[in-house]
């Protein structure tokens, strides 16, 4: 009797979960497996009939130090952008979730999400117009300030960081906002009744209680930024060669898919390793 019920439970579980697993299989597992297969080839089968299997593509990462240098540069970019997103996004989320009420909150929230809904290419080219020499930013500053301003931000690392921060900031704001908004008002009022200052409340209650959201946002920013290629290419110019742009080149310009795929998997492995190494530290910070 119990076995029968258990069997039925199992069947129901399989039925209910199968769409999700089917989706994962089609959308994630198959393409990734194809890429993994590509990364082990000497040549693309449609180009060279005598293709074979090799680990050379992975070996190239070790023999040519440029790749490691660029990966390191991309990781630094990831850290920079993530920190900037946290520094700008968390206070935004804090004000949005804990200070502003009602209609104004919805409007501001919409404004925060707006960058998400605009085309990323349009977004990046708009930044190019703003940041270039004698562009919108320089002219406005010139107009405001009495002395001459020469920023020339275009084609510099700061330009890349600005573009990426603008693209990924909503992640941090959204996740932090949700975590902060879930904190019960009574908890804050209780702390106030015990004499806690705003700073104490932020440090000992709001920050620890919303840390999971903030960290989720940070991961959501860090991972794609490390592999980003569009912002570095358009806003970075000659300075904008990163690990991501090299991978893009392999696929689009050089047409060396096996190397591009291998470099992608190395990136994936490094990112997973970083998150795995960081997770015990993050877990401790959470409690």
């Amino acid at each position: 009797m119990a076995d029968l019920a258990a069997a039925m439970d199992r069947r129901r579980l399989v039925t209910l979960l199968s769409p999700a697993y089917l989706w994962l299989l089609v959308a994630v597992f198959l393409p990734l497996s194809a890429m993994l297969f590509f990364s082990l080839l000497t040549d693309l089968p449609q180009d060279a009939p005598d293709w074979g299997l090799t680990l050379d593509n992975y070996g190239q990462f070790l023999t040519n130090p440029t790749y490691a240098t660029l990966l390191w540069k991309s990781l630094k970019l990831g850290v920079m952008v993530t920190l900037a997103c946290i520094l700008i996004g968390y206070p935004c989320a804090l004000v949005l979730a804990r200070t502003i009420r009602g209609r104004a909150r919805e409007t501001l929230f919409l404004l925060v999400i707006l960058p998400f809904w605009s085309n990323s290419l349009v977004r990046i080219f708009s930044w190019a117009i703003v940041l270039r020499g004698n562009g919108v930013l320089e002219r406005s500053l010139d107009w405001l300030l009495p002395f001459d301003i020469r920023l020339n931000l275009m084609f510099t690392t700061p330009a890349v960081v600005i573009g990426l921060v603008h693209s990924y900031l909503p992640y941090v704001i959204l996740t932090s906002y949700l975590a902060l908004q879930a904190i019960d008002d009574d908890i804050i009022e209780a702390a106030r009744s015990m004499g806690a200052s705003r700073w104490t409340i932020l440090r000992r209650l709001l920050l620890p209680l919303s840390l999971p959201g903030l960290l989720a946002g940070a991961v959501l920013v860090f991972v794609p930024v490390v592999g980003s290629f569009m912002e570095p290419r358009i806003l970075g110019g000659r300075m904008g060669t990163y690990y991501g742009t090299v991978i893009e080149d392999q696929f689009i310009a050089v047409y060396n898919w096996p190397l591009g795929a291998a470099l992608s998997f190395i990136l994936l492995a490094v990112v997973l390793l970083i998150i795995a190494l960081a997770s015990p530290v993050l877990k401790r910070a959470r409690t």
Partner: peptide, 28 residues
């Protein structure tokens, strides 16, 4: 509120979930 020197107990207790009992009591 912060300077009124009161003690308040809330309907749902509003304990700090990220702190131990001792830290909750020691907060003030």
């Amino acid at each position: 509120v912060e300077q009124r020197d009161i003690g308040m107990m809330f309907q749902n207790y509003a304990l700090f979930p990220n702190m131990s009992v001792a830290d909750n009591v020691g907060f003030g």
